[in-house]
Every structure is written in structure tokens, then in C-alpha cells.
């Protein structure tokens, strides 16, 4: 990376659900090209942070700045159009549609023809629809899903559904990609493939990636920098090695006293 500039800056982010503070005074800074991890025990508020960044929840307090503009209060689709895409913890594909349509839908905001052209099916529609389809097929080809393009998404095996979801997120043409537990439910071989895949898309699309993950192997293996959350607050930051040795992290994961035993 030649330019060292900030792409995402979260300051003092707080979210209360009623009296429950799901996220409190959360800070995070991502530089262009980072591949960072966000970990923490169950219920620590990691997915809430993702939902706050993508606009599904509105923060109680704090600011989220993406590419020098505040995105607090924007609609989720507007945030996506600015260049933040995500995947979901429990896969959320458009399950009754084909794999190709899943990716084509994600490309919708970049469509170059309007509704009127669509209704008339004119020449402009033909040209851009073809272009759009080819673009979607390119994304599928990158993930080796080309031959499955006409399959209904819900009929695919789990690992491939994950791939389709990542392909779909990339079709939004994001600059920042948020992956929510991409390795959940995968077997060891699939996890290795996934780690390759994440490295590969990170380099190929010049992306900034933030991922939530429970599988320590994945996080420690691919992330350059890790933020650890517990009870809605940041308890540690550092490189994988630093995190592995951090007492508060061990305490959060294994309980009090475990740190001393180790």
C-alpha cells in the first residue's frame, strides 16, 4: 500500500437497546488495504457493530466516518452504494433465485439502464443487460461457480452458498467488505479454502476487509490486526501475537483465573 489513508473511522460508537448497552464507546480505525479482525465471546456486540456500520441499526451516539463522510443516519442501501458491502452470519441468499440472479441483483445499483428502458426492452436495455450479465458471470467465474449459475441458490451445499454470498457482496463493488463469521459451520478443508479465498479477494480487488470470526485459526492466520470486544466494549487491540498473550482476552474467553493458570 502506497497511500496510508483512513477509510473507516468509528468514534465513541454506542448503541442501547432499551437499557441494555449492546455497544459502548467503541472505537475502530481502518486504513485502506487493511485486513483486520473483530473477535469476542458470544454476545459481545460484534454483529451489532456490523449492523451499525451498514445502517441496519441507528447508533445511540457516536460517529462513523467512511471516506471522509459521516454515514450515520443514511439508509442501508445508500451506505452500500457508497462502497460498504457485507455478508451475514446466517447466510442470507435470495434462496429461491438462481446463483446468477443473486449476483445480478447485487449489481443492480450499477445498472446503466432505467426502468423505462426495462419496460420497453429497447436497444439500450439489451446492451447493458448483456454487459451486466457478463459482469456477474465474471464474478462467478472468479469463485469457480460458473457452472452453477443456473442452480437455485438454496440447493447448493453450504460451503458454496458462502462463496455465492461473498461473490454477491463483491458484485456491489465495495471498497470495504465486512465478513460476519465466514467460516461458521465449515469443515477444516473448507476453512483452508476460505482463508485462501479471503487473501485472494483482498489482493485482487484491492479491498479493505474487516471480519468477525470465532475460529481462532482463521483470525490468527489471516488478520494483521485484531480488535477484541467483550460486553460491548473494546478490551484489547493488537497483532495476533499480542492478542494471544493478552490476559484480559484469555480471561474473557476462558473465565477468571484461567489467565494465571496459563
Amino acid at each position: 500500500m502506497t497511500t496510508i489513508s483512513t477509510i473507516l473511522e468509528i468514534t465513541d460508537l454506542t448503541k442501547f437497546f432499551g437499557g441494555l448497552g449492546a455497544v459502548r464507546n467503541f472505537d475502530l480505525t481502518l486504513k485502506k488495504g487493511d485486513l483486520n479482525g473483530l473477535i469476542g465471546p458470544n454476545g459481545a456486540g460484534k454483529t451489532t457493530v456490523f449492523n451499525l456500520i451498514t445502517g441496519i441499526y441507528e447508533p445511540t451516539a457516536g460517529d462513523i466516518v467512511f471516506n471522509n463522510t459521516s454515514i450515520v443516519g443514511l439508509e442501508p442501501f445508500e451506505i452500500t452504494r457508497l462502497g460498504i458491502a457485507r455478508t451475514f452470519q446466517n447466510i442470507r441468499l435470495f434462496s429461491n433465485l438462481t446463483v446468477l440472479d443473486n449476483v445480478r441483483i447485487a449489481y443492480h445499483p450499477h445498472t446503466k439502464y432505467g426502468m423505462a428502458d426495462g419496460i420497453l426492452h429497447n436497444r439500450k436495455f439489451d446492451i447493458h443487460e448483456k454487459e451486466l450479465t457478463e459482469k456477474a458471470q465474471e464474478f462467478l467465474a472468479i469463485f469457480g461457480l460458473e457452472n452453477l449459475q443456473n442452480e437455485i441458490a438454496k440447493n447448493l451445499p453450504y460451503g458454496q452458498q458462502r462463496r455465492v454470498e461473498i461473490a454477491r457482496a463483491l458484485a456491489c463493488e465495495p471498497r470495504l467488505l465486512l465478513l460476519d463469521e465466514p467460516a461458521a459451520g465449515m469443515n477444516p478443508r473448507e476453512i483452508l479454502e476460505l482463508m485462501d479465498l479471503i487473501h485472494f479477494i483482498h489482493d485482487r480487488f484491492d479491498l479493505t476487509i474487516l471480519l468477525i470470526e470465532h475460529q481462532m485459526r482463521v483470525v490468527m492466520g489471516i488478520c494483521k490486526f485484531i480488535t477484541v470486544m467483550d460486553f460491548g466494549q473494546v478490551i484489547a487491540r493488537g497483532t495476533p501475537k499480542e492478542i494471544q498473550e493478552n490476559e484480559r482476552v484469555i480471561e474473557a474467553y476462558l473465565g477468571k483465573g484461567a489467565g494465571h493458570a496459563a
Binding site: T80, F94, N96, L97, H108, T111, E129
Partner: peptide, 26 residues
């Protein structure tokens, strides 16, 4: 024609999964 255009696919995606559709910029 509407259904088979990009706008139509956006309409169908809302039926399939609203949250995912939002996250896809729809």
C-alpha cells in the same frame, strides 16, 4: 418486461430477503 429487467429483480429480491436486499444496495 419489468419483471425480467434489473428493476424486476430488485422487486423480487425484496420478497426473498429484505435485510439482504438492503445490504445489496437495493
Amino acid at each position: 418486461n419489468l419483471i425480467q429487467s434489473s428493476t424486476g429483480r430488485a422487486i423480487i429480491s425484496v420478497r426473498e430477503d429484505e435485510v439482504a436486499a438492503k445490504a445489496m444496495g437495493i
